[in-house]
Design a protein around this nucleic acid. Structure first.
Lengths: 227, 227
DNA sequence: TGAATGCTTCGGTTACGATCGAACTATGGA
DNA sequence: TCCATAGTTCGATCGTAACCGAAGCATTCA
């Protein structure tokens, strides 16, 4: 059994500039979409597609579909280690990689994502709902419980209207800044609209950033405590 | 400062089949000559030259000239680690690499190398001579001391004759099986001839293996104790 | 000195893979 | 039902690098 073909194959994967750039922009551990990775690598979407397919087939990346998006992340700890030791070999010892995460702290806190709430606040919402048994994850799909229905209606959201729409009610969405899931789907959107109407938050125009008011923050925290 | 070009560069080095094979045949830690590496990789000497130059320039290999040979070894522990983690990624977990060292135990013990003694016995000789102050390493070149001259003459080797030849008297030679140095040069050859004449050893014909007699072994050991 | 051996340089061929334009499918939301 | 957006497939182009034959150095040893 000769294992050298394998090492050459992995090496070849790492040996392309575009792919290398993709991989290192994933070093911070978070997932990125195909087009984001294309931009990172400075190539077109078509080219990115083929690269990403190769990287996934080679076991370096892990993919997760999310609606019309594809989120890619490093396949595991070993891959990250490999990349680190590669970087360590040449650039002995630069400070490890410039922060590629969300440059803007505000954005990391709260932002809009397809009209629902993302960022730390979005995660808080999601964690509260699942942690308190209002939503449950049934084999990948998110379901609302009786308790959840009650809570949502109490909160001023008309579930029946939402159900009339064809789009899925609950849906988890991978958060690119925190690599955690938050609530998407029509329920997610409804929550966001409700927050706006309650004046808990306001969108900063021309950006995806969402700004909470002081009162909004307080009331959000008390409504969605995380256990 | 973007470090991705570097990782791509190293990746590209690893990404060629011939180079990968060369690297993994060096995994056991010992040094190989350019032509041995060419054979390992299944390519011609010309092609090997360019590959080896790239690997050395890329900091993956370390080279040491030795007469008309060039010995290559992995540049360091980090390189070995990198290769291991690469292999680990795909072939989770084959036993690490087939033994590429000298297949023949006899050969590992004692053999001829340019008419001087190599293998464990050669190392023993070398270690004795340097350890007892008969030879000293002066900035890479090996010199004989007064004590050494006395010893050599006592042993039945005519130093003056050796000095008349144009070839260097003392010379250290990297041992491919043990990655240690042993004595080469005309003195090395003279020792070997003397051992033959004393009937301490005999060459096994058609091979580089050298066989010690029981008496030879005993006397060799007492003459060349290692401290 | 000359023969043998190890390595290198040069030139030309060949194969592979990165790239993108254009046209396509799939998904989400109105 | 329809639009906008994310990602894919196809085909053609282009550059790079691996490869070897042949001839050239360099070293050892007689």
């Amino acid at each position: 059994m000769d294992s050298t073909p394998n090492i050459a194959k992995i090496g070849a994967l790492l040996g392309d500039n575009a792919r290398a750039r993709m991989l290192s922009s994933l070093m911070h551990g978070k997932a990125l979409t195909a087009s984001e990775l294309a931009t990172e690598a400075g190539i077109t979407a078509q080219t990115a597609t083929t690269h990403l397919a190769k990287l996934e087939a080679g076991g370096l990346l892990q993919m997760r579909r999310q609606g019309r998006h594809k989120y890619f992340a490093l396949a595991g700890e070993e891959v990250a280690t490999l990349l680190e030791s590669l970087m360590g070999l040449t650039t002995s010892h630069e400070p490890l990689r410039t922060q590629t995460g969300p440059r803007d702290e505000q954005m990391r806190q709260a932002r809009v994502c397809y009209n629902h709430l993302a960022g730390n606040r979005g995660i808080q919402l999601y964690d509260h709902l699942t942690g308190s048994g209002k939503l449950v994850d049934e084999g990948g799909s998110l379901l609302i419980t009786a308790k959840g229905e009650h809570f949502v209606n109490e909160f001023g959201i008309d579930l029946d209207t939402l159900r009339a729409s064809r789009s899925p009610l609950c849906r988890s969405c991978l958060d690119w800044s925190e690599r955690r899931t938050h609530l998407a789907g029509s329920l997610g959107r409804a929550f966001f609209e409700r927050f706006e109407r309650l004046r808990w938050l306001k969108r900063v125009d021309g950006s995806r950033v969402v700004k909470f008011s002081a009162r909004g923050e307080r009331e959000f925290d008390s409504a969605f405590t995380v256990y």
